[in-house]
Design a protein around this nucleic acid. Structure first.
Length: 557
DNA sequence: GCTACTATGAAAATAAGT
DNA sequence: ACTTATTTTCATAGTAGC
């Protein structure tokens, strides 16, 4: 039996996910017995499963799992008797479970004896008894919100510990090493072990460094031979996968992402080699890298080519040829007004150097372009659409506000860049692809594949924002797609059962594409740049969870 | 409720200098 | 090689007005 324990953190109710290959024997029987079989297949004892189903009802398998996991935390239950299988990875997990749970604490007892305490204190106490520091507990409570389950909180703490441990700079600190308790599971160990091995071969704690120039395995506009790369065995498809996020994430983030995504080296590419705006991103994928080809026509690659009207007003001392990263917000009118005034004070000739510096700094910070004499302005929505490689008016209409257009666009792929990487799929799937698109946004991946001439046979798309779903749906209809577009609101809807169902009806996915939220990683975020464990950015773990499930389910077929 | 608008640095990579 | 300076960054929170 193969058991993959996945742990992640998030403020929303979620469970630790387990699945295995040996639980496919869901032939006949009542729905209840099927359900029991399902959880027993995950390694839970039948007695507990029956109890959990009774408590939660048959309908809600997620809360059943939650309950089961809570049991597992609370009791040194027979569940820890690992399957007497030969699989070592699961045994590691269960051994730890045993060791760590043998401490004599009991959640339910605490609950009785500390009834007088506020719930918060009670929870902190419980976590402290489990070996976590009160600091860790408080932070977790704060971040996960009141009413979070113990399982969620411990998930959170564990995830935070993993992130810290993955950071070589933090390892050296004099801080006592956090206890990992039973969360030192198979997955964590496996990944961490690999990470250490790697580091050993690289002398001092080597972390992922960004390449300079940031051209990944090559870009169409620079002459360079395509290097050879060999993928780790665990990364081989099917399905193919393609993951994206900001390159300039806090330290250690890409190391963690890489470890989860089967140790595949990220490909860092700046979209300034594809269009007139910079966009430094990391892509982790298992696609072939030979014989890529770009979308045609090649988009304009300088500001002047992209925005010919601005040329007339562009002063010679503004030496920019590329725009900086297109973000979700634009410069204010007040700012452009301040700049105009500063410039008008010096009509004759060029403004003094300190004014030039001030203006240029603001131009770079806000991606302002010249639209008149001494007149600067932020980019228009349709200009952003064009720069990112979307069809004109892609995000226009249908009730979307201007602010939301900027936001959706700023969070999107640069289509030409992604298309270049995905172009190898055209020969691999001449009949078209079946795509699982997570965090689809405004459909950058779909647009890229379509423009590459790769038919979209099926697209299962998951996107939280309704306006974004509408944009994709509307694009789907306007481009007369022949395939089937199925959309979901939340990645949480895609649990093992749903995926199995989908894969069964669709016939498997050819590629899983997704760029998980970056807002807790992005440098522009002054308030909550919390790293991969942040509220939204931790959804990366759902990308991994779903990808890994798809991998496992498809391997069974 | 929605929408537009504005003020709000820090972390980390890169460039430049010694 | 080391230090210092410069550059860049898929954003959030609060407010005002409708």
């Amino acid at each position: 039996m193969y058991i993959c324990l996945f742990i992640h953190s998030n403020h929303t109710p979620r469970c630790v996910y387990l699945h295995c290959e040996a639980n496919s024997n869901t032939g006949s029987g009542t729905s209840q017995s099927k359900l029991i079989l399902h959880f027993v297949g995950m390694g839970f004892p039948e007695k507990l499963v029956a109890q959990a189903i009774e408590e939660n009802g048959e309908g809600n398998s997620e809360s059943i799992l939650e309950t089961l996991l809570t049991y597992s935390v609370l009791e040194n239950s027979p569940q820890q008797q690992k399957p007497s299988d030969s699989d070592h990875s699961s045994s590691d997990y269960y051994e730890n479970f045993d060791d760590d749970l043998s401490d004599s604490y009991s959640w339910s007892e605490d609950e009785e004896s500390t009834d007088s305490l506020p719930i918060k204190d009670k929870t902190v106490l419980a976590l402290a008894k489990m070996g976590y520091t009160t600091d860790e507990a408080s932070i977790a409570m704060e971040r996960c919100g009141p009413g979070s389950s113990i399982a969620e909180l411990t998930d959170f703490i564990c995830a935070a510990q993993m992130a810290k441990a993955a950071d070589p700079f933090l390892l050296d600190e004099e801080k006592p090493k956090p206890k990992r308790k039973f969360f030192e599971n198979e997955l964590w160990k496996r990944k961490r072990h690999r990470g250490c091995d790697r580091r050993m071969t690289f002398e001092d704690g080597e972390t992922i460094r960004l390449p300079n120039p940031m051209i990944g395995y090559g870009v169409p506009t620079e002459l360079c031979p395509t290097p050879y790369r060999s993928l780790p065995e665990g990364a081989m498809g099917p399905p193919y996968f393609y993951y994206e996020n900001v390159a300039l994430a806090p330290k250690g983030v890409w190391d963690t992402i890489k470890r989860f995504l089967y140790d595949v080296e990220p490909e860092f590419v700046d979209s300034k080699y594809f269009c007139a705006a910079a966009r430094k991103r990391g892509y982790v994928h298992n696609l072939p890298i030979n014989n890529r080809f770009p979308l045609l026509p090649l988009p304009p690659r300088t500001i002047h080519e992209a925005l010919p009207l601005s040329r007339r007003w562009w002063p010679s001392w503004d030496t920019r040829t590329k725009l900086n990263c297109l973000q979700t917000c634009i410069g204010s009118a007040k700012l452009t007004e301040r700049i105009r005034k500063a410039l008008e004070d010096h009509q004759e000739g060029e403004p003094p150097l300190h004014v030039q510096k001030y203006v240029l700094d603001e131009c770079r910070k806000w991606n302002l372009v010249w639209v008149g004499r001494n007149k600067l302005a932020p980019l228009e929505c349709d200009e952003v659409e064009m720069l990112l490689g979307f069809p004109k008016n892609h995000t226009r209409g249908g009730g979307i506000s201007r602010t939301d257009r900027y936001k959706s666009l700023g969070n999107s792929f640069q289509v030409d860049t992604v298309a270049y990487h995905l172009s190898v799929l055209r020969d691999l799937f001449p009949g078209g692809v079946k795509l699982l698109s997570l965090f689809s946004g405004i459909g950058g991946a779909e647009v890229a594949l379509h423009r590459l001439g790769i038919p979209l046979k099926t697209v299962v798309s998951v996107e939280k924002s309704e306006v974004n779903r509408n944009i994709v749906r509307s694009w789907w209809e306007q481009t007369n797609q022949k395939g089937n577009l199925i959309d979901f609101n939340d990645v949480q809807e895609l649990d093992g059962d749903r995926l199995e169902q989908l894969i069964h009806s669709v016939g498997g996915f050819d590629i899983v594409i997704g760029g998980s939220p970056c807002n807790n990683l992005a440098g522009s975020n002054r308030h909550h740049r919390d790293g991969l464990e942040g509220k939204e950015s931790s959804l990366f773990y759902d990308y991994f969870r779903i990808l890994d499930l798809v991998k496992c389910i498809m391997a069974k077929r």
